[in-house]
């Protein structure tokens, strides 16, 4: 019975590796123990960050606007932070999946999430495991105004046409996620105009715009940046920025069309897990702030129709908490929250 002999060999291998594993655990413990005796302040001075690769986690599929931002920040941030930065796509569930992933990682600053306006809208919905309070805010990076898309041969030439039509028939507007910022601004538009839209969630704004172009859907609420690659193929009725956007001067703003309350921006920024040390957050902020001064970054911002949205950690956090109060109210009105 040769085979029996090898069971014993195997058992030996198991036992050996267990012993080695035990030693490994001990070693790690030794490394950490002297630090426990030090005061927090001493420890703070010693923070060497970053010493290993950083991962930027994004909830969008590769190629989506926020993913492109993450990839460019990763590329430029590698120079300013001095470590490799990779981008990880965690797609789905209205963005909560990327945040769930963040929460499974240690609060050491090596897992940075890209986040956007949606953090205060979707995450407070019933059943969501994490809220905006479970994160720290590193830097707000850019703003991308909302835009209302219809097909290029659509009977709705202006926002006015569109809203008039909505009074007499059911109009379906699609966009990213349920209870998302796009969902909220669409709801607000309907409320201000005295109509009710039916919201159809899609996996991405691009999907919704494709459905509009194909005549399957009346309109899509997405961001103006998506227009850059579809100019001439689709019509934008209005954009939510304060002034008209440089690369699409033909598109009027909601404000000039009589809806100043809809002047709001979809913002994008970087966040980390709550409990990440302040020093590390500051270092991340400094690194990415510097990256945003790179000429390549400026060029990208210009060509993609993004607006600079820089805010430092404390101001960023303040803005998010203020927005959260407002969104909570709207979500309750929409019946998404109790």
């Amino acid at each position: 019975m040769k085979s029996k002999k090898f069971v014993w060999v195997l058992a030996l291998v198991f036992a050996l590796s267990l012993v080695v594993a035990g030693c490994g655990g001990g070693k790690n413990g030794d490394k950490e123990s002297p630090k426990q005796g030090e005061t927090p302040k001493q420890q703070a001075q010693e923070v060497k960050f970053p010493t290993k690769p950083i991962t930027i986690v994004t909830g969008s599929s590769p190629g989506a606007p926020i993913d492109v931002m993450a990839r460019l920040l990763a590329k430029l941030g590698e120079k300013t932070l001095g470590v490799p930065i990779s981008v990880l796509n965690k797609v789905g569930g209205s963005g909560t999946i990327a945040l769930s992933y963040n929460q499974t990682q240690p609060a050491d600053g090596y897992t940075v999430n890209t986040e956007a306006t949606g953090i205060t809208s979707i995450l407070q919905m019933a059943g969501s495991p994490y809220t905006y309070k479970d994160f720290e805010y590193v830097i707000r990076v850019q703003m991308d105004p909302f835009a209302l898309y219809v097909a290029k041969d659509s009977p709705y030439k202006t926002l006015d046409d569109f809203l008039k039509a909505a009074k007499s028939k059911k109009i379906r507007v699609g966009g990213y996620g349920k209870g998302s910022p796009h969902n909220i601004i669409t709801y607000d538009l309907g409320k201000k105009a005295g109509v009710e839209f039916e919201w159809v969630p899609f996996n991405s704004g691009n999907d919704a715009i494709m459905n509009v172009m194909g005549g399957h859907l009346d309109a899509a609420m997405s961001n103006i940046s998506a227009y850059a690659s579809k100019k001439g193929e689709v019509r934008v009725l209005a954009v939510s920025s304060d002034e008209r956007v440089n690369f699409a001067p033909e598109v009027p703003t909601f404000k000039e069309l009589g809806y100043p309350e809809l002047t709001r921006y979809h913002w994008r920024g970087l966040i980390v897990k709550k409990g990440t040390p302040k020093e590390i957050i500051q270092k991340l902020h400094d690194g990415f702030k510097k990256a945003m001064e790179d000429p390549e970054w400026k060029k990208y911002m210009e060509s993609s129709g993004m607006l600079d949205g820089y805010l430092p950690p404390d101001k960023f956090k303040e803005a998010v908490y203020a927005q959260a109060d407002n969104d909570l109210k709207v979500l309750k009105e929409m019946g998404l929250l109790k």
Binding site: V9, L10, V13, S17, G24
Partner: peptide
């Protein structure tokens, strides 16, 4: 705990032994 580059060769060797 042991790391990929330690367990993997051990695993491969053990598996090949097991497969005679």
């Amino acid at each position: 705990s042991l790391g990929y580059f330690v367990v993997t060769p051990l695993f491969l060797i053990a598996m090949m032994f097991l497969m005679q």
